[in-house]
């Protein structure tokens, strides 16, 4: 594995958190229970502080479900990161999840989005404006 730029790997209840060139990256793999979601949020916020990260990338491409609880956690995560001068970009949302969140009225206004981690990384590292306006 090419470890260049990798600053650290951490495991939050089985979910690895990787920090690369100032970006804290987490790929949520399974359906997490509420407790694990809150735990993950704690770990992410601490990791941002510890690394002085510029951004957080949350990859949810493996998730079939994002309910209002998880949505709220992602929203508050973004808020906390912003206070620490870091951007939060949500990537890889599945069409079915996007349609469900919209139906729920959860449009995650304060959270940036990108198609994948690669594009999100590019936005953070090169300090580019958000992909899309918040609706």
């Amino acid at each position: 594995m090419d470890t260049e730029g990798v600053e650290g790997v951490l495991h939050a209840g089985g979910t690895p958190i990787v920090t690369i060139t100032g970006c804290v990256i987490v790929a949520i793999r399974d359906d997490l229970d509420d407790q694990s979601v809150m735990h993950l949020q704690d770990e992410l916020v601490e990791e941002v502080a510890r690394r002085g990260a510029r951004g957080v990338i949350i990859d949810i491409s493996a998730l079939e479900i994002v309910d209002t609880f998880a949505g709220r956690m992602i929203g508050s995560m973004a808020q906390m990161a912003r206070m620490m001068n870091a951007r939060t970009i949500l990537v890889g949302m599945r069409p079915a999840v996007a349609m469900t969140l919209v139906e729920l009225g959860m449009t995650l206004v304060g959270v940036e989005t990108a198609l994948n981690a690669d594009k999100a990384m590019n936005l953070i590292v090169n300090d580019l404006p958000p992909v899309a306006l918040a609706q």
């Binding site: 969140l101 919209v102 999100a120």
Partner: peptide, 10 residues
Amino acid sequence: AAAVRLMGAQ
């Protein structure tokens, strides 16, 4: 439009 944005597109 909201769903498109959630997917990371404009």
